[in-house]
Amino acid sequence: MNIVEWIAAGVLTLGAVFYLAGTVGLLRFPDVYSRLHALTKADNLGLLLVCVGLGLLAADWQVGALLGTIWLLGLLAATVSAHLIARHARHGHGQATTNSEES
């Protein structure tokens, strides 16, 4: 393994750590909203690090740009779904089960 691969391995591992932290937060935080914090922020940082690691391994500007696009789309999906879940919970569906989605 050369130096770039070592760095990439380190970055990928760090990304995995953030995913782990996000999952721990999902399990430990007290309410829906706080859990969403953990999911959006920690997982997006994890995704960023994984993308950076893979980009280093690929060493190709085209792949790098695609990975960047993937990250941006991941951000978009995370932030919109977090907003929608929070809004849903805010409008009194906090304890509701998935059944009563359309009431």
Partner: peptide, 17 residues
């Protein structure tokens, strides 16, 4: 499908996705 109001983020999401 019941109208969901005009959630600004959903519109933006659709226009991008």
């Amino acid at each position: 499908t019941p109208p969901r109001g005009d959630l600004p983020l959903v519109g933006a999401l659709l226009a991008i996705i």
